[in-house]
């Protein structure tokens, strides 16, 4: 070993850098810094406008102290109902469709052509932003909750099928093989060998997706796809911050309840 105590004592010690090559290290640092300041420069902030806005910001914050649930109560109620309905139906339909797709997208149980088709569906669903999908669906199916329902179902498929397929690919092979060895049919094999292993994850993911779908349903209204978003948008346009605060508080509380429930349910199934 060439390292000896004599050669080391008296020499300063420095932590070995994360990137060994000093040219690359400094290069990356400089690029990152330059980019950072260019990006900041492109922000182009109109500070005067921001200054004027502060007053509105203060009013908005103050509105949270006295939210106005009353004056638009019927709009809020209707919007919330619509959001909840869209959330529930789309989650159910999305899950139902994503289970077969997840089975198809798991390389260890699906033949290659099926695998490719299912993976393609998943990629498409994941790559498209919900809002963009909603715009297209509104253009095709008209305004209303149907477009929102379809959007959320579509988004659920990409999310759930991908994570579920990964879970299936990670499952314990021995258990599944043991069931196959009994001479079961393919469906029986899925039912007894695969399903028990992925069930806890499926339930956990479904509830998580329910939560996401609710949050998403709150914005779909901005593009006319139903739900509380439309009411929210109107309130913003009229600068009715009290109503905005009321709606946002409701959303926050519902999300908190959903998260609390999902915590309980996930703890129970695992």
């Amino acid at each position: 070993m060439s390292v000896t105590l004599e050669s080391q004592v008296g020499t300063p010690w420095k932590k070995p850098p994360f990137i060994q090559n000093s040219t690359i290290r400094w290069g990356l640092l400089i690029i990152a810094t330059v980019y950072f300041f260019m990006a900041l420069g492109s922000m182009d902030v109109n500070w005067e406008r921001v200054y004027f806005g502060l007053e509105r910001g203060r009013r908005f914050v103050a509105a949270f102290l006295h939210p106005d649930f009353g004056s638009r109560a019927s709009d809020i109620k209707e919007g919330m109902m619509e959001s909840v309905i869209m959330t529930v139906t789309s989650t159910v339909v999305g899950i139902t469709i994503s289970i077969p797709i997840a089975l198809g997208a798991a390389r260890n149980i699906a033949p290659l052509p099926v695998y490719l088709v299912c993976r393609f569906i998943i990629s498409i669903s994941r790559a498209l932003n919900e809002i963009i999908v909603a715009i297209l669906f509104v253009a095709i199916f008209g305004f209303g909750p149907l477009a929102g329902f379809l959007t959320l179902s579509f988004a659920t498929i990409g999310f759930l099928a991908k994570l579920l397929a990964e879970e299936i690919e990670d499952m314990n092979k021995v258990q599944a093989e043991a069931v196959k060895a009994t001479g079961s049919s393919w469906l029986q094999w899925i039912n007894f060998g695969v399903q028990p292993q992925i069930m806890p994850r499926l339930i956990g993911l479904s509830i998580y997706r329910l939560d996401i779908n609710f949050r998403e349903s709150a914005v779909l209204g901005l593009v006319g796809a139903g739900g509380i978003g439309a009411t929210l948008n109107t309130a913003f346009d009229r600068y009715e911050f009290d109503t905005v605060a009321a709606i946002l508080l409701i959303i926050i509380v519902v999300v908190m309840i959903l998260e609390y429930l999902s915590g309980i349910i996930r703890a129970r199934v695992q």
Partner: peptide, 21 residues
């Protein structure tokens, strides 16, 4: 995290005006 970034954007546009910021 309960509130979607699009809603935050809506809010900020109405407070500090439209734009990248």
């Amino acid at each position: 995290r309960s509130i979607n970034s699009l809603i935050w954007a809506l809010l900020l546009v109405s407070i500090i005006g439209p734009g990248v910021f």
